[in-house]
């Protein structure tokens, strides 16, 4: 009698253990999606697998932390404080963004410039009170636009900026945020995740079933649904275009990408620039600055730095220029030209 009960009991225990293990394994297929409004845009985060709940929760907190730090709209943010005090001892995030921005400024020969903010304000893109500034106003503001006038001491972590200068990381902040969120996913051992931070897409690993993520690239044209679809893993896809934010006055459309050299919205025949690379921060910075450069300069820039990134340019004739590194994974129905290094 006793022996039999033992046997029954052991069968029961074994079953419960087995079922529990089975159920835990099944948990790997779960996914968590979270939507939020932050950094003046709409964000969507999705993670797959165990820990996805905690990982997405941590990601949301990180986004809110960075938003509070980098927002130009808040009186309390570090960005606003430095712009007001003209000096400061920097946080780790601010210091990193400043270093990366200065590197990018050098790399892009001034096409990427975080000190363009006074012009953004003049055009009304900072507070949505749009207006067309006068030529003299633009010219006087342009004298404050110069990243080289920022003095940053890496040993003491102190920054000093000229009296009239203002810094805004808007051209790089969302990309940096997506990189940080990707790191959080790694910390939680997430194998598969994707976030769309206001159009900036960052992927972690592959899709849950092992296949590549398929990211469509928005078309600025009403009659074209998409520029194309790119299949990627573990990369950021970031597009910049004049169609994102703009206003019209006297029948002329003014968009939000201001050339730091002319102080005017960029008009060079490009309608959008998409950058594909592992580093979200760089992808974000490059998408804006290559848009500023224009087609020819952007292409020669890529030829000089082809190991760093790939890109898709779209011009006013709706023609695409696709770099050779992604020719296998990009599909489109539009006319396109492959850019090769040599």
């Amino acid at each position: 009698m006793k022996e039999r009960w033992k046997r029954v009991l052991s069968v029961g225990v074994l079953m419960i253990v087995g079922i529990t293990i089975g159920l835990f394994l099944r948990d790997d297929n779960k996914s968590v999606t979270k939507n939020l409004f932050a950094m003046d845009t709409y964000m969507e985060l999705t993670a797959y697998g165990r820990n996805s709940e905690e990982a997405v929760e941590a990601a949301v907190q990180e986004i809110q932390r960075l938003d509070a730090l980098l927002s130009t709209g808040s009186e309390m943010s570090e960005v606003t404080i430095v712009n007001r005090e003209k000096k400061g001892s920097l946080s780790e995030d601010y210091a990193y963004l400043l270093k990366r921005s200065m590197e990018l400024w050098k790399l892009t020969d001034g096409a990427f410039d975080i000190t363009v903010y006074p012009l953004m304000q003049a055009w009304g893109f900072a507070d949505k009170k749009y207006r067309v500034p006068s030529v003299t106003e633009i010219e006087s503001l342009l004298t404050y636009v110069d990243t080289s006038k920022i003095s940053y001491d890496e040993t003491t972590n102190e920054v000093v900026i000229p009296e009239q200068a203002q810094i805004d990381f808007g051209g790089i902040a969302k990309g940096y945020t997506s990189s940080m969120v990707a790191q959080i996913m790694k910390k939680y051992h997430i194998q598969s995740a994707m976030f769309n931070l206001g159009g900036n897409v960052q992927t972690v690993g592959t899709k849950a079933d092992g296949s590549l993520w398929r990211i469509a690239i928005k078309s600025p044209y009403d009659n074209v649904p998409y520029l194309g679809v790119i299949s990627i893993a573990e990369k950021a896809v970031i597009t910049s275009g004049g169609y994102e934010r703009y206003f019209e006055e006297d029948g002329i459309r003014y968009h939000h990408i201001i050339n730091p050299k002319t102080g005017m919205p960029v008009q060079n025949g490009l309608v959008s620039v998409t950058i594909i690379c592992e580093d979200g921060t760089m992808a974000d910075g490059l998408s804006t600055s290559l848009f500023v450069m224009g087609k020819e300069t952007a292409i020669s820039f890529w030829k000089a730095h082809s190991e760093m990134f790939d890109m898709i340019l779209c011009d006013e004739e709706c023609k695409l220029y696709v770099t050779e590194g992604i020719k296998e994974c990009f599909s489109t129905e539009l006319e396109y030209e492959i850019i090769s290094k040599y």
Partner: peptide, 18 residues
């Protein structure tokens, strides 16, 4: 946010870069 959502169907793509 207005979004289109399809059940039980293969999606054309997973997200949109814009």
């Amino acid at each position: 946010v207005v979004e289109l959502h399809v059940q039980n169907r293969e999606d054309d793509f997973d997200s949109i870069a814009q």
